[in-house]
């Protein structure tokens, strides 16, 4: 034992936390040895220990509240059985039925994770990761909603998406995975891809990272488009961008790989990154609204004239705005969740 821990290292150290909050014998042994090696650290360790215990004390009632409310939901979901249990003199048959149901519950509960609800929602500013019953991994971006087919667990792998999500679909050739959005359906067999289909956006986009997906537009149910890896398909207002008058033409483009750090802009959000690739201030503001859960008003004289390419990782909203401001000048004000972006006042800039 040669290392002296800093305060920050102590309060984030797993064994240290175990020592402060449980009766874990190994942890107690470790920290007793540490203190016997470095008796000068006693006061320092004691301070960190108090901090962790205090934090634990703050979390205890909150965690109990949360567990109790989950227990309430569990009881409510069991209501038909509890009616029998509480209000009927149980006849033999009913007793058996209840035992069987309770047994089934135990079996289900000890052998699998609790079932996912049929609708999963993320709030503005909140992103969620989940694993569906079939093993498919989904990262749900901010302000999005995923609705599972009622028979999803029985093998009907169909979901409806509003908003944006990144999918890593579990391979199962027998059961195709289908994602419905307002303007397109995406059918897949084991692949990773991103779909952006926010209700109030003008475009719907599917980007494919690996594998293969087949896309059917709601407006042309007879035609299928197959995407290859690193391609994306974009629909404006539910139709393909019509720079080609031939209505069968398909606008498929490469996903925007940002060369500097090999980050694909379409899926950057799954790594907690916010990326812009030659996007107008209006588009940037729209992404910021969802990312930070705010409303942004942009001066129309600059909304479409300013273009940005940038990657942000853990900046706060003011930090992000400040950096965007340095690239191309504008002014902004933040009041609570309302942000106003206006043209730079020339007098002030001098």
């Amino acid at each position: 034992m040669t290392k002296i821990y800093t305060y920050e290292e102590l309060i984030t150290h797993d064994t240290f936390i175990a020592w402060c909050t449980t009766q874990n014998a190994d942890a107690a042994q470790y920290w007793a040895t540490y203190l016997s090696h470095f008796p000068g650290e006693t006061a320092h360790v004691e301070k960190a220990r108090q901090t962790v215990q205090q934090l634990h004390a703050v979390l205890t009632p909150l965690a109990a509240d949360e567990a109790a409310s989950e227990f309430r939901q569990l009881l409510e979901s069991q209501q038909p059985n509890t009616l029998h249990i509480w209000y009927k003199r149980i006849a033999v048959a009913a007793a058996i039925a209840v035992t069987v149901t309770a047994g089934a519950w135990y079996w289900q509960h000890t052998t699998q994770k609790p079932a996912l609800p049929e609708v999963v929602q993320s709030l503005p500013g909140e992103r969620k990761s989940l694993v569906l019953a079939d093993g498919t991994k989904v990262n749900l971006n901010v302000n999005s909603q995923l609705q599972l087919h009622p028979q999803f667990k029985q093998g009907v792998r169909e979901i409806t998406l509003q908003g944006e999500a990144f999918f890593d679909v579990h391979q199962d050739a027998q059961h195709p995975f289908i994602i419905h959005t307002t303007h397109m359906d995406v059918k897949v067999l084991g692949t990773t891809f991103n779909i952006m289909a926010y209700q109030n956006d003008t475009k719907t986009e599917t980007s494919l990272i690996s594998g293969a997906v087949e896309i059917t537009l709601k407006s042309k149910p007879g035609n299928h488009i197959v995407l290859k890896p690193n391609e994306k398909i974009t629909l404006e207002n539910g139709v393909l961008p019509a720079n080609n008058s031939n209505s069968m033409a398909i606008q498929v483009s490469k996903t925007s790989l940002q060369s500097k750090n090999q980050l694909i802009a379409e899926t950057a959000w799954t790594n907690d990154k916010l990326a812009f690739n030659d996007e107008t201030l209006a588009e940037v503001a729209h992404k910021l609204e969802r990312w930070y859960g705010v409303q942004i008003q942009v001066d129309s004289t600059i909304a479409d004239n300013y273009h940005y390419t940038a990657v942000f990782e853990k900046e706060t909203l003011p930090q992000t705005l400040h950096i965007l401001q340095l690239i191309l000048p504008f002014q902004y004000t933040i009041h609570g969740t309302e942000v106003k972006i206006s043209k730079q006042n020339i007098n002030q800039s001098n």
Binding site: T60, P61, A63, A64, D65, A67, A68, S69, F71, R72, L75, E76, Q79, T82, L83, W86, Y87
Partner: peptide, 18 residues
């Protein structure tokens, strides 16, 4: 009544959980 007895159990659960 069922809701009441549920609530009693939820309260008991909350009290003893920590």
């Amino acid at each position: 009544n069922t809701t009441d007895s549920n609530e009693q159990y939820v309260a008991l659960y909350r009290q003893h959980y920590p």
